[in-house]
Design a protein around this nucleic acid. Structure first.
Length: 216
DNA sequence: CCGACAAGGTCTACC
DNA sequence: TGGTAGACCTTGTCG
């Protein structure tokens, strides 16, 4: 499909969904100003969504909200069984991440996030940290976006698919390392600039085209 | 009804 | 040391 058609198609869709998209983004912004507990819950949500369905993630986080701040990995695991594919390992990830933030930052996740000036250094930190478990580049970007940080590409299966169809990227393959992630992120940014749709809005737009919904 | 396959990736072990 | 299979795991959906 020629570039011009793609741009027109996206804009037609964007005009319809614009209100919902903006609304969702303002919710993300608001979340960023919430308590340490709520922000940690958002991080836990992202740990849960990796290679699980979005609905599974939402359903699961609701089930364990009362357990994730104080419960053991086993307790979290018990609450999530039957609601999530990876009911044994993901609670362990959440637990380990929580204990790390407790040890290093006195349970103050906002302090942790605030200790970086550069947004990409912050993401590198989250993605590369071996004690922040279950969070790679995609989920790190997802998390930061969900707490109102802007400008990151969230390169999941759906977005990669779209970008490939649009010929923005050359391979229909999820990035498996940092350099690939950054490269495709730049390509998506260039595309978003050229069609004049903000990258954060473009992410929600493309995702909604694949799934029919504007979730998180 | 049943087999195949997908579901917002990341971690670990091994070469 | 840098890269890549295999593990994680179950449920819903589609032919």
């Amino acid at each position: 499909m020629p570039y011009k058609k793609i741009k027109e198609g996206l804009w037609a869709d964007y005009s319809k969904k614009k209100t919902n998209i903006k609304k969702r983004l303002s919710e993300f912004k608001k979340k960023g100003k919430a308590s340490n507990e709520e922000i940690f819950e958002e991080l836990a949500f992202c740990i849960l969504t990796a290679n699980a369905s979005a609905k599974m993630g939402i359903r699961s986080i609701d089930a364990i909200k009362d357990k994730i701040h104080t419960g053991t990995a086993e307790e979290i695991s018990k609450s999530i069984k039957g609601k999530h594919r990876f009911w044994r390992i993901r609670p362990a990830f959440i637990y380990e991440t929580r204990e790390y933030i407790k040890e290093e930052f006195g349970n103050n996740i906002k302090k942790m996030l605030g200790s970086f000036n550069d947004p990409y250094e912050l993401r590198d930190f989250l993605a590369a940290n071996k004690r922040i478990k279950g969070i790679g580049y995609k989920e790190s970007s997802h998390f930061l976006r969900n707490i109102g940080r802007k400008g990151y590409a969230i390169l999941d299966k759906h977005i990669i698919n779209c970008l490939y169809e649009f010929k923005v990227i050359e391979e229909n393959k999820r990035p498996s390392k940092r350099s690939e992630y950054l490269e495709r992120e730049t390509q998506m940014k260039n595309f978003s600039e050229s069609i004049e749709i903000d990258i954060d809005e473009l992410d929600l737009l493309l995702w909604s085209r694949q799934t029919g919904e504007i979730l998180k």
